[in-house]
Amino acid sequence: MALGASGLLLLVLCAGSDCWRQDAKDPLSSVGLSVRCRGLWSECIFDNVANFWTCDIPISYLSEHPAVLVVTRVLVILSGFLTLAALPPFIAGMKCTNLIRDKVPRKYKFSLAAGSLFLLGGTAGAVAVLWYGIDTVQKYKLEVTFSIPGVTYELGYAYWMAAGGTACACSAGILLIVASCLNAESPGKDQSPRRHCPPDFKGTYL
């Protein structure tokens, strides 16, 4: 529950944060006058002198954008929805809940379904994080190597929040699937052995 809830929270926060890419610090300057951040939806600038934060939002989200940006948006949203959808069957499959009558078989199925949803959501987020990170690192190396003028960006805090949420979702899914498979194969411990007595037992009385 802790891993699943943490993964969902981090994925929601990273999807709404506008700092997937942050401007790299210039080693030749001692004081940074501004901080630039690029997110999935807008680009923001924080002025350290005026203590003012402004964001540039594109006119249309349906206009032409880089493929890595569009795919990252879709996969992050999909990962959040899959992680959210995994919580109801996960709660129904817990041993401490009594939402269903037939406890043992159905609870294992609910737990297995929740683990599969967590794992699918974490996998979608992992693909987005991996692709976005590789693209950012390649652009950073290219701009630094050829001294391309302009702002050079590196990975920001929202990216690491997405990586943490993906890791939590994948871990929750793997643990649930393994636990469900082990519980389904092992017999229940609460079943006490029955005593078998002869049906036609006749006693002798004196």
Rank of each mutant, 00 (worst) to 15 (best):
M1R: 07
L3V: 01
G4E: 06
A5F: 07
G7R: 01
G7L: 00
L8D: 03
L11S: 02
L13P: 03
A15K: 04
G16L: 09
G16R: 10
S17L: 12
R21E: 14
K25S: 11
L28I: 14
L28G: 09
S29D: 13
S29P: 03
S30D: 13
V31S: 05
V31E: 08
S34I: 06
S34W: 05
R36A: 10
R36V: 08
C37A: 13
G39M: 01
L40R: 03
L40P: 04
W41N: 09
E43S: 15
I45R: 15
F46H: 13
N51M: 11
F52K: 15
F52I: 10
T54A: 13
T54Q: 15
C55L: 03
D56L: 15
I57M: 11
P58I: 09
S60D: 15
S60M: 13
S60E: 14
H65A: 11
H65Q: 14
P66L: 12
A67H: 13
V68Y: 14
L69Q: 03
V70N: 10
V70D: 08
V71K: 12
T72A: 09
T72R: 05
V76A: 09
I77D: 03
S79A: 10
G80Y: 05
F81K: 06
F81P: 02
L82C: 01
L82E: 00
L82M: 04
L84T: 03
A85G: 05
A86W: 00
L87W: 02
L87K: 06
L87M: 06
F90E: 00
I91N: 02
I91D: 00
A92M: 12
M94C: 06
M94L: 09
K95N: 14
C96P: 08
N98W: 07
I100H: 04
I100A: 02
D102Y: 04
R106W: 11
K107V: 02
K107Y: 02
K109L: 10
S111H: 07
A113R: 02
A114D: 00
G115D: 04
G115V: 00
S116M: 06
S116C: 10
L117F: 05
L117Y: 01
L119I: 03
L120D: 04
A124Y: 05
A124E: 04
A124G: 03
A126T: 04
V127C: 11
A128F: 02
W131Q: 13
W131T: 11
I134E: 11
D135Y: 09
T136G: 08
Y140F: 09
Y140L: 11
V144A: 14
T145L: 11
F146K: 09
S147Y: 11
S147D: 12
I148A: 10
P149M: 10
G150F: 07
T152S: 14
Y153L: 05
Y153F: 13
E154W: 07
L155P: 05
L155G: 02
G156H: 05
Y159D: 05
Y159T: 06
Y159R: 08
W160G: 08
W160C: 04
M161I: 04
G164H: 04
G165N: 03
G173H: 00
I174L: 01
I177G: 00
A179R: 07
A179Q: 14
C181R: 03
L182G: 01
A184P: 07
A184I: 12
A184C: 12
S186V: 12
S186R: 15
D190H: 15
Q191K: 14
Q191C: 12
R195E: 13
R195K: 13
H196C: 08
H196L: 13
H196F: 15
H196D: 12
C197D: 14
P199L: 12
K202C: 06
